[in-house]
Simulated assay, not measured.
Amino acid sequence: MKKPVYMDYAATTPVDPAVADEMMKYLTLDGVFGNPASRTHAYGWQAEAAVEAARKQVAGLIHADPREIVWTSGATESDNLAIKGAVAGRQGVHIITSKIEHKAVVDTCKWLEHQGTDVTWLDPAADGTISCEQVLDALQENTVLVSLMLVNNELGTINDIAAIGAELRQRGVLFHVDAAQAGGKMAIDVGSMPVDLLALSGHKVYGPKGVGALYVRRSPDVQIEAQIHGGGHERGMRSGTLPTHQIVGMGKAFSLAQSGLEEEIVKLEALRKSFLAGLQSLDGVSLNGSESNRVPGIVNLSFDGVDAESLMLGLRDLAVSSGSACASATVEPSYVLRGIGLSDEQAHRALRFSFGRFTTEEDVAFASSQIVDVVSRLRAVR
């Protein structure tokens, strides 16, 4: 059976072969398989050294101090640790987020809301952005945290995190940023982009699933309460035996992303242009998100007169999605698309196409031709 052309890089990326090769060195008896917390023998020392080397590699991609990197099981845990950890034990406090954040943030904030935390849910602009003015207008005397994503996972839209962060830093309000879709897709510098907590994911950057990191600013020191207890690992912020092979894989993936970032952005811009050019013969195609203020690898499109479910069934030779992988079990229209003002009918006509490092010009040419054929056929039988 022929494999479908993969156009769902926003859901997950394949592990880069160089990453897989590196990971294999940390699994078996003839490799570095020890527990990084074992301080009494060479197996543990070698594993700890590998973990710390990877910590430097992850820190390097976002220009952080390695001591500011806390290992987690992924961006979902990082988001939970950041938000719950910042609010834990504080009564009568207020936090701000938006209605189109990733479910890891939305559901965490809803949980806190049920616990008595006051939450303001900001409405995005039609292109999926949250403005600095919106955030400032929503601030209250008891606001302790703002949580916004850097790149929207369904639209690819970029928020002006630097401007928002600068204003919040002046006011002493903690700023958490979900950067899972931004890592390896755009430049991130936590020095010029003043954030306090930033979530990262391994499997969005050609690394393994099941590993992520949370950047926790050290100067001035940000304090968060641990959500997992049992051993005091990661400077007391996240207990649990560290998976050396996954951490090494994430470090290698982030190192590759840093060295090839500019080249990859150029490539993805070219692929995006070719993909959209191949759809020009179709009428009634609209872009959801921003034309310019976005990363290149995510394209969310609505097709007039065609529902996404029927279109996906027709596109059997393409792997695409109708939205976030974390919400794919529901038949409800995307809350992100509804959040930017689309009707349920319009949202039901949308598909997300995302491409990456291993996508070729032939792939996007094939994809666009398939879309034109299937959309035209479905419209003809309406």
Rank of each mutant, 00 (worst) to 15 (best):
A42G: 05
T28K: 13
A42W: 10
D30S: 14
D30K: 12
T12F: 15
D16G: 04
Y26E: 03
G31M: 10
M23Y: 02
V19M: 00
S38D: 06
A20K: 00
T28D: 06
Y9E: 03
Y26P: 09
V32D: 02
A20E: 00
Y26W: 07
L29T: 07
D8L: 15
R39Y: 11
A18T: 04
P36H: 01
F33V: 08
L27H: 06
P36Q: 01
A20N: 01
T13K: 13
Y9H: 08
A42K: 11
G44W: 02
V19I: 02
S38H: 05
M7K: 09
K25P: 07
A42P: 07
V15N: 03
D30H: 12
P36S: 01
Y9C: 14
P17S: 03
A10E: 06
P17I: 00
G34K: 06
Y9L: 14
E22P: 11
P17V: 00
G44D: 00
R39V: 14
L27R: 10
D21K: 00
P36M: 02
A10C: 13
Y43W: 12
M24D: 03
M7I: 12
L27Q: 06
N35C: 11
L29R: 10
F33G: 05
T40F: 10
T12K: 10
T12I: 15
A20C: 03
Y6I: 14
G34F: 04
L29W: 11
K25Y: 04
K25R: 13
L29K: 11
L27P: 05
S38Q: 09
T12C: 15
P17D: 00
V19H: 00
F33W: 08
A10G: 10
T40R: 08
E22K: 12
A18L: 13
M7Y: 07
R39F: 14
V32E: 04
R39L: 14
Y43T: 09
T12L: 15
A20P: 01
A37L: 12
H41C: 12
M24G: 08
F33P: 07
P14T: 09
A10F: 11
Y26L: 05
V32N: 06
S38Y: 07
A42I: 12
V15C: 12
P14R: 13
E22T: 13
K25N: 07
G44R: 02
G34Q: 02
D16W: 03
A37C: 08
D16P: 03
D8I: 15
D21G: 01
V15W: 04
D8G: 14
V15L: 12
R39C: 11
K25F: 08
A42F: 10
T28H: 10
Y43D: 06
V32W: 05
L27C: 10
